[in-house]
């Protein structure tokens, strides 16, 4: 199957943008890991066990995120050297059905998450008032983000949504 050089370059650029994002995420994950081990961060926690737990959690999450990003970077780099692989990857990232599924899943998540967070906050507040308040705050954040995206896409959506945009 032939695809012209211009289309190949366009696909490559789209995939390479993803690599830049992944590198940015790796940098952030590394920063989080380094900061979590600093004395000033450890001293912020009232109890040393809490500091240990958070340090372990941040380190574990950062390692997983870094490995996942490295996997995507390698996959994308390999795809950029092979026309067929690149076409398949580009089509997968821009597939209309997949994007519709993501949209529906996102819609349901946005509707259900505030309800679940609120219910959880009621239960959690019985054990920890601060944690319950935190969950209520998270509920508001989810609702505000959902509304903000509604407003943004209401003004800017052209009917063409791509993973690479």
């Amino acid at each position: 199957m032939d695809i012209n050089a211009e289309k190949f370059e366009k696909m490559k650029k789209g995939i390479q943008k993803k690599n830049s994002s992944a590198l940015g995420i790796i940098a952030l994950a590394n920063t989080a890991m380094i900061l979590s081990k600093r004395d000033f961060m450890i001293k912020l926690y009232p109890h040393p066990e809490q500091a240990d737990f958070m340090q372990g959690l941040v380190t574990g999450m950062a390692i997983v995120i870094i490995f996942v990003c490295l996997f995507y970077i390698l996959r994308n780099a390999l795809a950029c050297t092979d026309e067929k692989l690149l076409t398949r990857l580009y089509n997968k990232l821009n597939d209309e059905r997949e994007l519709e599924i993501q949209g529906m899943a996102g819609k349901k998540t946005a509707k259900l998450s505030p309800v679940i967070l609120l219910l959880l906050s009621l239960v959690v507040s019985l054990f920890s008032f601060e944690a319950g308040l935190g969950l209520i705050g998270a509920t508001f954040v989810v609702c505000i983000i959902d509304k903000a995206f509604h407003i943004y896409y209401g003004k800017n959506y052209t009917g063409k949504d791509t993973e690479l945009s």
Partner: peptide
Amino acid sequence: DIVGTTRQ
């Protein structure tokens, strides 16, 4: 591949 979508 030709029409720009996935096998699925």
